[in-house]
């Protein structure tokens, strides 16, 4: 489903040029739960931006659902993001003073989904993300951190994307709340078959995924699913 070959990304030019990604190749199949790990400066954010179609690679190819998306225009990328990708951010990025339901419906507004179907799908996504019906009409600033992140997950789900990209989703949460949110991701992956890519620098967080890709200085240093078997054996 995701097929990345020889991706590089260079910022700046000439003597000032900085190569953030130095040729990365991997594939992700439908229904995988992958963590991309690495210290800061390893290029994981850059990789996430490219995977999320927020940016394009300097060279190499990126095929998402059989379509080459490595050289599209801004508006074409926006279309891809709308149809195929759901984002969960470290800082949640919910609209303030707006109800939970309305926040989750936002991607459907841009996708041109009609009114009735909109609220039905938003409610379904909220249920899937573990939110209770009674919270649907609350404003986003009236929720706890864990609830806010689950609303953000519901927002990422609502469009039934091919790929959910979570960028340090537990970075602003305490450990216990973080566990709940990560549990939500696992549940989505196992019960709904959602494809999830989790970007993090914390090994504890990455452990929740079935496969971990380690990045360092713009290169993949390890890509193993062995810990999943290890976990399954426990």
């Amino acid at each position: 489903m995701i097929d990345i070959r020889g991706i590089t990304k260079t910022y700046g030019s000439g003597d000032m040029a900085f190569q953030a990604l130095k040729g990365i190749s991997f594939g992700i199949a439908d229904g995988e739960f992958v963590a991309i790990m690495g210290p800061s400066g390893s290029g994981k954010s850059t990789l996430m931006h490219i995977l999320g179609c927020l940016d394009t690679p300097t060279s190499g190819s990126y095929r998402l659902d059989e379509r080459d998306v490595s050289a599209l225009s801004d508006d074409e990328l926006a279309e891809i993001r709308k149809d195929k990708i759901g984002f969960v951010f470290q800082s949640f990025n919910l609209l303030p003073r707006t109800t939970v339901l309305r926040n989750v419906m936002l991607p459907l507004v841009y996708a041109g989904v009609g009114g009735d179907e909109r609220s039905a799908r938003a409610a379904r996504a909220l249920h899937a993300a573990g939110m209770q019906e009674s919270h649907f009409t609350h404003r986003s600033n009236e929720l706890s951190g864990g609830q806010v992140q689950r609303v953000a997950i519901a927002r990422a789900l609502v469009n039934e994307p091919s790929l959910i990209l979570a960028d340090e989703p537990t970075g602003n949460l305490d450990t216990r709340t973080g566990e709940v949110v990560l549990g939500t991701f696992q549940k989505l992956n196992e019960e709904h078959g959602s494809t999830i890519v989790l970007i993090t620098h914390e090994p504890d967080v990455a452990e929740h995924a079935k496969r971990i890709i380690h990045l360092r200085d713009g290169r993949i240093v390890s890509d193993d699913a062995s810990h999943a078997q290890r976990r399954a054996a426990l």
Binding site: G52, D75, A78, E79, R81, K82, F87, S91, L106, Y110
Partner: peptide, 16 residues
């Protein structure tokens, strides 16, 4: 700015 970033991330075009 952040709201605009979010809107663009979830698929808003320049026109939107």
């Amino acid at each position: 700015t952040r709201e605009i970033g979010l809107r663009k991330a979830i698929g808003a075009t320049e026109r939107d």
